[in-house]
């Protein structure tokens, strides 16, 4: 499922062709303030990449660059390159709507639309024209809810408002909504920070299951969570990607002293 971003096959292939998304020399400015400094980071398919770091370190900024959600923020300027499957996502020919179809996003606070559960999931496929008939659409909604592990809980009340669900269910509804348009990458911005521990465990399991299909990036404040769910971890500090690598290595044998200090709880 490779939607065309609207550009020809790129001339120069990146050496890290395996990476689903690769950022190079990425800098982001909010007005005069620089939020990200020269970040190089690869995101691989079928892996969970977690981004950790103290508040305001730029990890959410990085995340929002991948589906160009920063475009809507006034005064935000992005320099450097992000390539997805070798295509530059900031190229002028790239349609941001098709990009966001391929890069789904789940937010910190569950934000279902104030519509029915069914409509929440059906909205994306509908605006992208993904299903021709009503039964196609219903099938797609059911399978998305199933993959998000929510279907059994809501199958009898698909017509009820999405906002009537519990926080954890709402977050899984948002995941189902993101899955429904068939993305390749899913970005999650602290998806569990508003949830209780049981709902968090449920989401973490789900993230692990979804890894089989998608490249997943999770921003998290919880180092334990990063250690539990991710294969690779990036540590941001003051807008700089300090260290990036295998999760097990980052948490047991970090190279940088700042990473060491952060994971042992000396700051942050």
């Amino acid at each position: 499922m490779q939607a065309d971003l609207g550009i020809d096959e790129d001339e120069e292939k990146e050496p890290v062709a395996l990476a689903k998304v690769s950022a190079r020399s990425l800098s982001v400015y909010y007005g005069d303030k620089q939020a990200l400094f020269d970040v190089d980071l690869d995101i691989h398919a079928n892996q969970v990449t977690s981004l950790i770091g103290p508040s305001g370190c730029g990890k959410s900024t990085f995340l929002r660059c991948v589906n160009r959600m920063n475009d809507v923020i006034e005064g935000c300027r992005v320099e450097g390159s992000i390539r997805m499957d070798g295509h530059e996502i900031h190229a002028p020919e790239v349609d941001v709507v098709s990009l966001r179809r391929r890069v789904g996003m789940v937010f910190q606070n569950p934000n279902p639309f104030p519509k029915s559960i069914f409509e929440n999931v059906a909205y994306g496929p509908r605006i992208h024209g993904l299903s021709r008939t009503r039964s196609d659409l219903e099938e797609l909604v059911v399978s998305s809810l199933e993959r998000a592990g929510l279907f059994d809980e809501v199958k009898d009340r698909l017509g009820e408002p999405g906002t009537s669900l519990s926080g954890g269910q709402q977050q899984r509804l948002c995941i189902a909504r993101a899955i429904a348009v068939g993305p390749e990458v899913i970005l999650m911005d602290e998806p569990c920070s508003a949830l209780d521990p049981i709902a968090t465990a449920r989401i973490e399991e789900l993230i692990d299951e979804l890894r089989a299909t998608y490249a997943i990036v999770v921003v998290t404040h919880s180092m334990q969570q990063a250690a539990r769910i991710s294969q690779r971890t990036g540590f941001f500090h003051l807008g700089v990607l300090v260290e990036e690598g295998e999760t097990s290595k980052i948490f047991t044998n970090p190279e940088d002293a700042r990473t060491q200090d952060y994971i042992t709880g000396r700051f942050g």
């Binding site: 589906n67 959600m69 809507v72 709507v97 098709s98 966001r100 179809r101 789904g104 996003m105 937010f107 934000n111 279902p112 639309f113 909205y123 994306g124 605006i127 992208h128 948002c174 909504r177 993101a178 429904a180 348009v181």
Partner: peptide
């Protein structure tokens, strides 16, 4: 944001 993120 939710609507933008699904590609509206």
């Amino acid at each position: 944001e939710a609507a933008l993120a699904v590609g509206a």
